[in-house]
């Protein structure tokens, strides 16, 4: 993914609750290039095949990443930009890192976070996360220093080879892995891309500015639960309407599982290939502990190796 993810999302409006008010500015933030994923157009989605072999060229890396910039995008939502050249060089849209929460803890488990962007040239990766518990709360306090990342992990998006139209549907922070996917699809030039984003309120529409810069406002459909932008409705409603109109070849979705399931049903009914990205509590992140299993039509598979992205038809919804 390239040029990093500079200055995404209306920096001037960002509030920054940290004591230093976000003094560790990234010199790049002036350039308002949209997030672009330059991680290669390789359809394999960056299979971490190395995790299954003892080859050391591919596969995940354990890297102490340096905090370059860390700021709040909305109440409780942060964007963390890190220098992690080994991981940036390998990341693919839809993959994730397993991040060790900083501070005394102890935090026996790492936290899985998807890539919002990664750029092999500058060696930067961007994560966007919401504070939901003690690990992300501790992370949000970090202004500088190093953070241990394990990644890239899992198998990312694998859009079909064909030409066509793609609809990406994100609920809340589920937008995160869709942003680099959109960038990749635009760069490959095979798909016309539209996005539907839903959140509780306008402030929660993370990624909207980057996606608008990338796709144009007319291709970014926004909806909120509070009705601030029109009818108050869940993201599944406009998504289903667009899908029912037909003409879609590929649908990718991420967000609450119930939402993804509804999007997948609508996509399948509309004859589009659909991929979903599922979350499970994770231990190792590497495929050994079997804590992250998802029921699929080929048995139990691991969200950290065979996932987190699956063709929706393979998922046996619980």
């Amino acid at each position: 993914m390239s040029p990093p993810p500079a200055a995404t999302g209306g920096l001037s409006r960002d509030h920054d609750p940290r004591p230093d008010g976000g003094q560790n500015h990234d010199p790049r933030q002036g350039d308002r290039k949209p997030t672009v994923w330059s991680g290669g157009s390789d359809k394999s989605g960056g299979l971490p095949t190395g995790a299954q072999t003892d080859g050391s060229k591919d596969g995940p890396r354990l890297e102490d990443a340096t905090v370059i910039d860390h700021r709040s995008l909305a109440p409780g939502v942060f964007r963390l930009r890190l220098a992690a050249p080994q991981i940036a060089a390998r990341a693919q849209p839809g993959q994730f890192v397993h991040l060790r929460p900083p501070g005394p803890g102890p935090y026996p488990l790492r936290r899985p976070l998807g890539f919002y962007a990664a750029d092999p040239d500058s060696g930067l990766v961007e994560l966007v996360y919401q504070v939901v518990g003690r690990g992300t709360a501790a992370l949000s306090q970090v202004a500088q220093g190093r953070i241990s990342l394990l990644g890239p992990l899992g198998r990312g998006w694998r859009p079909p080879d064909a030409l066509g139209r793609a609809l990406l549907v994100g609920g809340g922070l589920g937008v995160v892995p869709l942003v680099p996917l959109a960038a990749q699809l635009v760069r490959d030039g095979r798909f016309e891309v539209e996005v539907v984003l839903g959140a509780r309120s306008v402030a929660g529409l993370i990624g909207r500015d980057d996606l608008t810069a990338l796709l144009g406002a007319e291709r970014v459909h926004l909806v909120t639960d509070d009705g601030a932008l029109g009818p108050a409705q869940p993201v599944t409603v406009p998504a289903a309407r667009l899908l029912a109109a037909g003409g879609w070849d590929y649908v990718a979705t991420c967000g609450p599982e119930a939402m993804q399931r509804l999007v997948a049903q609508a996509a399948e009914a509309a004859g589009a290939a659909c991929e979903v990205s599922l979350e499970r509590p994770m231990g190792c992140g590497l495929g050994v502990c079997l804590s992250c299993v998802v029921q699929t039509d080929r048995g139990r598979q691991r969200a950290c190796v065979e996932g987190p992205v699956w063709p929706s038809r393979q998922v046996v919804w619980q």
């Binding site: 190395g50 003892d54 080859g55 890396r61 495929g287 050994v288």
Partner: peptide, 17 residues
């Protein structure tokens, strides 16, 4: 037992260090 699988994944990671 159970925290290391059969060792392949950690072997690959260790090999990268």
């Amino acid at each position: 037992s159970g925290t290391f699988g059969s060792g392949r994944e950690y072997a690959a990671l260790w090999a990268s260090r």
